[in-house]
Design a protein around this nucleic acid. Structure first.
Lengths: 195, 195
DNA sequence: CTCAAAAGTGAACATTGTTCATTTTTCTTC
DNA sequence: GAAGAAAAATGAACAATGTTCACTTTTGAG
């Protein structure tokens, strides 16, 4: 009759996290209200704190899931294209597509900030850096002679540029480009940077 | 003996806004606590609300000042360089420099989000778009044959790419490039996009 | 069966954005 | 200058929400 505690603990963790993800999807970061999350998941407020140290930790967990989804999406795209430059374009468009289709998750991923003094945990930094691998590989293929250090810098630059275009396109403060035109600009950007 | 009301009103507005700017500079967006702002400015909470509809409006005012400073900085740089490509590089590095030197103001400018349903006021959108003019001009010089519509899109793309590089470099979640290497990448980015 | 540990609860507290009835100051009119 | 209206300023009170913790219930081990 052993294992009930473990199963219960895991289910609670999962259901709380799922409720938090659903809340973010529905209403963005601001919608993560501990009382609401607890009620949605079917527990009391106290139980949430048994599984997540505080609201920031919960949001970090949500962001970790989001990053996982992005990584999964990119992994599925990588296999479909051989030619390095074309692959980079597909990756960039996939990243853009994810942001468009999952606006709230994506914005939470990048706008949630830990309070001053609290450092981003190393495992989460690694999750982010892992994404860069998808970009580094084709860049390496395009220029095998590049030094490792330069490749690393160039990879970050390429990612950052694409990320910026996605960011600005979603910003209400700028009148973003929409639809096809945006995708054209994305292709232009990748071609100029990597071509 | 007239004009006292106007002067008082203006001074209160100014001092509240100054306190809010100081708070953001010192501790970021989260440091904007109405009670603290009121105390710092030397007024009661109620007075803050006589001049700013709510916290979002106050932050919007702070962001407007920040944008003004960025604009001023860019305007001062534009005059120093004739050659279009070099001017773009100077502008990009100035933008990066501002973000580094005014991290909290810069991050507040781009991470403060209005609650769902509240639209960014048109005057603030215009303030943002005004920045693009600095970029559009040299791009036009570099390619006078470009269609207006294409120039507008290319301008946004160039700005977005630079903005992305700045963003990522400030993100704790990524291990950003630092110092000289970052400036090298910025120059590379501008050259590839506009050169 | 008994007791310790883990899971779960929810009242209570602290912080903070916001409102509004009230007071104080300034302006206008006579 | 006096009186009333309008504006400026106040701060207590309310509501929402993150967090804690003493307590109850459930599970596991001996």
């Amino acid at each position: 009759m052993a294992g009930v505690q473990k199963a219960k603990s895991e289910e609670t963790h999962r259901r709380v996290l799922e409720a938090a993800i659903a809340a973010v999807e529905a209403g963005g970061m601001e919608a993560v209200n501990i009382r609401k999350i607890a009620a949605d998941a079917g527990y009391s407020v106290g139980s949430v704190y048994k599984h997540f140290e505080d609201q920031d930790a919960l949001l970090l967990a949500v962001n970790s899931v989001t990053l996982g989804r992005i990584k999964e999406l990119m992994a599925s795209k990588v296999e479909t294209v051989d030619e390095p430059l074309a692959r980079l374009k597909v990756l960039a468009l996939a990243y853009l597509g994810f942001a468009r289709d999952n606006r709230n998750l994506w914005m939470t991923l990048f706008s949630h900030q830990l309070p001053e003094g609290k450092a981003v945990p190393e495992w989460h930094i690694q999750e982010n850096i892992a994404l860069l691998g998808f970009i580094a590989a084709p860049l390496r293929e395009l220029d095998p002679t590049m030094q490792d250090e330069d490749l690393a810098a160039r990879t970050r630059t390429a990612f950052a540029a694409v990320h910026g275009l996605v960011t600005i396109s979603l910003e209400a403060r700028f009148v973003g480009l929409s639809g096809e035109k945006l995708e054209e600009e994305m292709n232009f950007l990748v071609e100029r940077l990597a071509g």
